[in-house]
Amino acid sequence: MIKSELVQIIANRNPHLFQRDVENIVNAVLDEISDSLAEGNRVELRGFGAFSVKNRPAREGRNPRTGDKVAVEEKWVPFFKTGKELRERLNR
């Protein structure tokens, strides 16, 4: 399923809304999650999962080809933990 298909499904279930509105709604939800993560917040959606940002401290890495040491800077990466209910539903 891609985003336009998700929009289509939601639009079909809400005939009083224009497809254009549904697209804005889906984008508003995804943007809100992205913006919150960028601000360093978590987003917890019970039954689905929780989005968070993890910090990877600076470390000394190596170029695997040459074996040279390289400094790897600290970074922040998005992370998702599947919620309990969804985990169970996947294995029913």
Binding site: M1, I2, K3, L6, I9, I10, R13, N14, I25, V26, V29, L30, I33, S34, L45, G47, F48, P78, F80, L86, R89, L90
Partner: peptide
């Protein structure tokens, strides 16, 4: 209601075994 519906539809697709590709998100 719409937020709930969006989350539900994503869950349903994943449970059906589909991958869900939301461009510029994840």
């Amino acid at each position: 209601v719409l937020v709930e519906m969006i989350i539900d539809e994503i869950c349903e697709a994943v449970v059906r075994g589909e991958s869900v590709k939301l461009s510029s998100f994840a």
